[in-house]
Structures are given as C-alpha cells and as structure tokens.
C-alpha cells in the first residue's frame, strides 16, 4: 500500500518527467557551460559539437542544461534542436560556365539539386537583362571552395581567435 501511494504521489507531481524531456544539441565546435547566463560567470565545463544536453530552463538568449554532472548555461547561438548536420552543398569546385556561347551542363549540381531553382534558360534571361551575374558568383564560389578545415584552423590559431 505504501509503495502504491508513493508511486501515485510521484506520478501526480511529475507527470511531465515521463514524457520527452527537451534536449538541445551542440552545433558549434564547442560550447562553454557557464554558471550564470553570462560569459563573465564561472566556466563550469565545455560541451563538444554533437553533445546532447538536457534542457532544464530557458532564458533570454541562454539555455540552462545538464551534461553529466554539470548543470549550467549555454548560449543559444551554439545549440540547436536537432543533431548537427554534415556540410550541405549543391556546388562542387568544378562549377559550370552558364554564360556565353559555350554552355556546359552543370556537372557541379547533384541530380536532385539540378531540379531546384531556375532553369539555364531563365538564368540566361536574367543575365541578358542585366539582373543577374552568374559568372562572378561561380568565381567567388570557386575561391571559397578551395578553403579547407585545416586552413581555417591555422587562420584561427595565427590570429589568436577560435
């Protein structure tokens, strides 16, 4: 009887505990867990990208979480509702030339992505009307595509940033 009563009390007081507790996932390379919702407070720990953190409270721009034995605040900029996704790209380094007389098929676009957005005809129309510039777009994408994680890491280290 006592055990039954205890169970009843627990279930009445904490019904929400039985249902999906909210969690967030670290999206940034790392997320500092602070004692207060403030970067000047004591740093209690560091969560890594992909870590699942149980949410206990929400603040203005901050979320209170527990991670193992640590309970503290992470900045909302570093977390999201779902596990972090891998990089998504519809462009490879081998971009197409969509302008000019010799147009090549856009080998850079995946077959799924090729069905998205405007057709080559529509892009050419916008270009001819002076409304769009795909040549410069491809140029900046080509340069950006050559930058890898190692170079970004070195850039951060050399600048004393992260």
């Amino acid at each position: 009887m006592k055990k039954t009563l205890m169970l009843l009390v627990v279930l009445l007081v904490f019904p929400h505990a039985l249902f999906a507790a909210e969690s967030v996932f670290v999206q940034s390379v790392k997320a500092k867990i602070m004692g207060e919702p403030n970067f000047k407070s004591k740093e209690l720990g560091v969560a890594q990208k992909g870590d699942k953190l149980a949410v206990t409270e929400k603040g203005d721009g901050w979320v209170k979480v527990t991670a193992g034995s640590v309970s503290g605040w992470v900045n909302k900029l570093t977390v999201g509702d779902a596990p972090p996704m891998d990089k998504v790209s519809i462009i490879t380094a081998d971009s197409a030339n969509l302008e000019g007389k010799s147009r090549k098929r856009a080998s850079a676009m995946t077959s799924a992505a090729a069905a998205r957005g405007l057709s080559d005809t529509e892009r050419k129309r916008l270009t001819d009307e002076g409304k769009a510039n795909y040549r410069d777009l491809v140029e900046m994408e080509k340069i950006a595509a050559t930058i890898g994680d190692r170079e970004i890491g070195s850039f951060a280290d050399e600048g004393g940033v992260q």
Binding site: Q27, V29, L77, D86, K87, I152, F155, G159, Q162
Partner: peptide, 14 residues
Amino acid sequence: MLARNSNRPELNFT
C-alpha cells in the same frame, strides 16, 4: 572561422 562558433554548421558560408 566565425561559422565554427555558430549554429549552422551545415552551411558553407561564401
């Protein structure tokens, strides 16, 4: 480098 600290890791900021 900034993107590493934010919540859209799936994007290639260009």
